[in-house]
């Protein structure tokens, strides 16, 4: 494997891994602060039409 190959591999794998890790950490931090998305009720009250498995 050439030094160029190592460079491409390191940059590509490093960038993809860091981006993924960074995004997941950000998402977890935001959710920890109590995002309004967490714990939303699944249904509007008063609707009993749909099936429930």
């Amino acid at each position: 494997m050439s030094w160029g190959g190592w460079l491409v591999l390191s940059l590509s794998v490093g960038a993809a891994t860091l981006l993924f890790a960074g995004c997941i950490i950000c998402v977890l931090l935001i959710e920890d602060k109590g995002s309004h998305m967490t714990g939303i009720d699944l249904m509007d009250p008063g609707d009993d039409e749909e099936d429930a498995p």
Binding site: G22, C23, M37
Partner: peptide
């Protein structure tokens, strides 16, 4: 199925980066 004020920029980037991690790394 998101609510109208839910974040989509970070969520979109996170989902995309998960795919790139699986693909490249």
């Amino acid at each position: 199925y998101l609510k109208k004020d839910d974040d989509i920029v970070l969520s979109g980037l996170a989902a995309t980066s998960a795919n790139e991690f699986a693909e490249i790394s």
